[in-house]
Amino acid sequence: MQIAQWAALGGGRFFPSREAPPPSAPEADPVDGRTTLASKPQGRRAFLVVVDDSPEMTAAARFAARRAARSGGRVALLSVVEPVDGGHWMFVGNLMAEEAREDAERRLQQVAATVHACSGERPELIVREGSLKEQLFKLIEEDDEISILVLGVAANGEGPGPLVQSLTGKNAGKLRIPVTIVPGDLSDAELEALT
């Protein structure tokens, strides 16, 4: 009797329910426009810009914004948080991943402001976790609206970044969309003239 009562009253909680809440996917993050921006324009081709901390990336973003505004398209900004190695301690790795994600989101917001200023429209913001190249290919594969990839190259003669190198070299044939390469030192006036 007592045991039955105990079980009825909540002894069952000792046996965790199989129906655990589904793990909260990182996509549920508010900054990730893919799931939360209700105003995502449908059916318009998107200029994809990969956001990193290089100066030439802003040139690519400004070019894409103007180009999109002129041609009735929109801009999508991708930031990829690469996996990090925390050494001995797992909490270090967790903190590193979290701070890297915060940095990526901050950068996205900054570039989004630039794009907004150039095109008058909020770009779509995408944060992905994983290897940059893999995630880029996956995103382009998944999202049919992305129709041009815009990349910047440094103007100081250091040669193209790893992404440009890989896309014009080994992985050149893998993309299903064209790539536009923007010189990093174009001024606003020059960009205006070009677009």
Partner: peptide, 13 residues
């Protein structure tokens, strides 16, 4: 590494 994070408060990167 933990000392740098918690005592010096360096960015984890």
């Amino acid at each position: 590494v933990p000392a740098m994070i918690y005592l010096l408060e360096m960015p984890t990167a």
